[in-house]
Simulated scan of single mutants.
Amino acid sequence: MKREVFDDLWDKADKEHSSQGNNSFTFKHHLFAVLDDELKEQQQPQLTIPKSIADKLDKFIKTDFESLGHEDWWIQENGLIEWFSKTPNCYIKDAYLAGKAIGVTLVKVVEG
């Protein structure tokens, strides 16, 4: 973070702290809150996956392969093998599925 940006954030936290009569939080808490807001606003690198692929992966998760057959057959039949074979798509697929499994968004779904 550039020094000027930090100085501006410091001033903002100081003003917020002073405006609340210095009684609700310590200055450090105000500074961390302002820094947290600033970091959330900065654009972070993000993995993306086309919606058409995400929809197929969502269907893949719900498929009972014990009654249907082998997973590789399903992947091939649903046109995913071409997309998976392109690096880093196979890793993005794994991150998407892992996020689904633990209930967090690790990969952003985009139109396509």
Rank of each mutant, 00 (worst) to 15 (best):
93 K>S: 09
12 K>S: 10
10 W>S: 08
41 E>Y: 06
41 E>L: 07
89 N>W: 03
103 G>F: 09
65 F>G: 00
112 G>D: 07
6 F>K: 10
107 V>M: 00
10 W>C: 02
42 Q>I: 12
1 M>N: 07
109 V>G: 00
89 N>P: 03
108 K>A: 08
5 V>C: 02
77 E>H: 10
108 K>Q: 13
19 S>Y: 01
110 V>Q: 10
41 E>K: 15
91 Y>H: 07
30 H>D: 05
25 F>Q: 12
93 K>G: 11
112 G>N: 13
76 Q>C: 01
2 K>T: 09
13 A>W: 12
85 S>T: 12
49 I>A: 04
27 F>Q: 06
8 D>G: 04
72 D>E: 08
112 G>W: 01
86 K>R: 09
54 A>Q: 11
59 K>M: 07
22 N>D: 11
81 I>L: 04
14 D>M: 14
63 T>I: 05
18 S>Q: 12
104 V>L: 08
56 K>Y: 03
35 L>V: 11
63 T>E: 13
100 K>D: 01
42 Q>T: 08
87 T>C: 02
105 T>L: 00
27 F>S: 06
52 S>L: 04
6 F>D: 06
30 H>K: 12
25 F>V: 03
43 Q>E: 13
88 P>R: 14
65 F>C: 05
15 K>G: 04
10 W>R: 08
84 F>T: 07
77 E>K: 14
47 L>C: 06
103 G>L: 03
15 K>Y: 08
88 P>M: 09
102 I>A: 06
95 A>Y: 04
111 E>F: 00
94 D>N: 06
95 A>D: 02
75 I>E: 10
99 G>A: 09
22 N>E: 14
31 L>N: 11
83 W>D: 01
17 H>N: 13
7 D>E: 15
93 K>N: 05
22 N>M: 12
77 E>D: 15
4 E>A: 09
61 I>A: 06
82 E>M: 03
95 A>W: 05
64 D>E: 09
16 E>W: 15
73 W>R: 14
91 Y>L: 14
108 K>I: 02
5 V>T: 15
71 E>Q: 13
104 V>C: 07
1 M>S: 06
43 Q>H: 01
68 L>V: 13
7 D>M: 03
21 G>A: 12
85 S>N: 15
46 Q>M: 11
110 V>N: 03
16 E>L: 15
50 P>I: 07
10 W>D: 02
37 D>F: 03
22 N>F: 13
90 C>S: 14
70 H>R: 12
101 A>M: 10
48 T>R: 03
45 P>C: 06
95 A>R: 09
11 D>C: 00
44 Q>P: 01
33 A>V: 04
